[in-house]
């Protein structure tokens, strides 16, 4: 299963969630993606979308510099 990182730090437009959605289209079921985001809203809106579509949240944490690391697995 492949892993990829999407660096969406400092992205206001299209923004971290849109970057995540775009990237997930190119992934295979079972692949994981780690999203880097400096937008605090990502910790809320990414899980909201992931659950609504039926993918899987793997992990969310914030590093000492304030960057959110949000890991998602493509489930369908």
């Amino acid at each position: 299963m492949a892993e990829r990182t999407v660096d969406a730090r400092g992205s206001f437009c299209p923004g971290p969630l849109m970057e995540l959605i775009s990237n997930m289209k190119s992934m295979q079921v079972g692949d994981t993606l780690e999203l880097l985001s400096t937008d605090a809203g990502s910790a809320k809106d990414v899980p909201e979308w992931v659950h609504k579509v039926g993918h899987e949240m793997v992990d969310t944490n914030q590093d000492s510099e304030g960057t959110f690391h949000i890991k998602v697995r493509k489930a369908k």
Partner: peptide, 10 residues
């Protein structure tokens, strides 16, 4: 629209 508001820019 793809995300939870009507435009990507809040």
């Amino acid at each position: 629209y793809p995300i939870g508001r009507v435009h990507s820019l809040e």
